[in-house]
Design a protein around this nucleic acid. Structure first.
Lengths: 95, 95
DNA sequence: TAAATATTTAGACATTCGTTTAAATATTTA
DNA sequence: TAAATATTTAAACGAATGTCTAAATATTTA
C-alpha cells in the first residue's frame, strides 16, 4: 500500500501510467515519450512495478510493460472508504 | 493535482483522513491520535489543506478540520481514466 | 490585564527522492 | 564469436520531505 501510493506520487510515473492506457509498450518506447534519461525511466518503471501498478514481461531482448489491475484496485478500495462520507444527503420527501 | 497526490503520499496524512471520516475535529484532538509532536501534525494538516482534502474553520481558539470533497473528486476523476481500462464495477455511491 | 490554552511558524537536521553518467547484463544479428 | 541493441544496476549529488524543539500568535479565562 505504502509503495503503491508512493509510486503514484511522481508526475512522470503518473504520465507513464496514462501512456500505458494506450496499450503495452517496451521500456525504450516508453522512454522516448519523455525528455529524461533511460536509467531514470527504468527506475520509475521499477517503482511502478513494486506498487503493482504495472507488469513486466520479458520478450526477447525487450521488456514489455503493461498496466496491472491489482495496484489500481488497492487505491480504488482505499478511496471507497470515503465514498460513504461524501454521499449526498437523501431528500426527506420522495420526489 | 500535484499537491493533492503529494498530500496522500504520507501514511500519517492518510490516517488523518481516515480519522476524519468519523467527523470533524480540532487540531488538538487529531494530534492526540498520533505519537508525534503537535507541530508535525499541524504541518500535515497544512499539506492536506493545500491538497483540498480537508477544510479548516476557526471556532474560537480552536481550528476545526473536516474532510473536503474537492480533493477527493480530483483524485477520483484521475482514476476514472483507468477504471474504463479495467472496467471496474461502478461504485454504488457517487463520490 | 495576566495567565492559560490552542495552534502555527521558524529553523535545524537526517533521510528519502529523482536525476545523471558510467558500467554491467542479456539478447540478437552479422 | 564479435558487434550492436535493449535495459538495468551502481554511484554520486542536489533538492525535497518529515520530524523535532523553541518561539510566536491568537483566544479565552481568572
Amino acid at each position: 500500500m505504502e509503495i503503491t501510493f508512493k509510486a503514484i506520487n511522481d508526475p512522470t510515473r503518473r504520465e507513464i501510467l496514462v501512456y500505458l492506457i494506450g496499450g503495452a509498450q517496451n521500456a525504450g518506447e516508453i522512454a522516448k515519450q519523455f525528455s529524461m534519461s533511460k536509467p531514470s525511466i527504468s527506475h520509475h518503471l521499477d517503482l511502478l512495478k513494486q506498487g503493482n501498478l504495472i507488469h513486466a514481461e520479458k520478450k526477447g531482448q525487450y521488456i514489455i510493460y503493461s498496466l496491472n489491475r491489482s495496484g489500481f484496485e488497492l487505491v480504488h478500495a482505499w478511496f471507497q472508504g470515503f465514498a460513504q462520507y461524501f454521499e449526498f444527503p437523501k431528500p426527506k420527501i420522495r420526489l
